[in-house]
Amino acid sequence: MNPRDEITKYLPLTESTYYILLTLIEPLHGYGVMQKVDGLSEGTVKIGPGTLYGAFQSLEKEALIIKVGEEERRKIYIITDKGREVLKEQYLRLAVMVRSGSVI
């Protein structure tokens, strides 16, 4: 696989995954992610704990996020370089979608 496909194979991200990755630009634990997504999405996207736990598991497995610490039983994650590339690619696609949709 060429290096670009390594990034684009994750696209499109679900709304939840997009926001989770976006919040992990800074290190956060699960509770922080849930709260920040609520704020960033202006209340349009809610992340339930089952959805978040599943996302953490698969994002960590795919090395898009990495564990950087632990506070009591809360693991703290941050986005990786690969995760950032995926996010950036999704952002560019979304920007095109918004631009082309401006006729509405």
Partner: peptide, 25 residues
């Protein structure tokens, strides 16, 4: 009430439970 089907290792359980508790469950 909500049921989750999670055949997960014991080692991952504390993190799993904490995320749910933090969300008010």
């Amino acid at each position: 009430y909500r049921l989750d089907y999670m055949p997960d290792s014991e080692a991952r359980k504390p993190e799993y439970k904490q995320i749910f508790r933090d969300a008010g469950w």
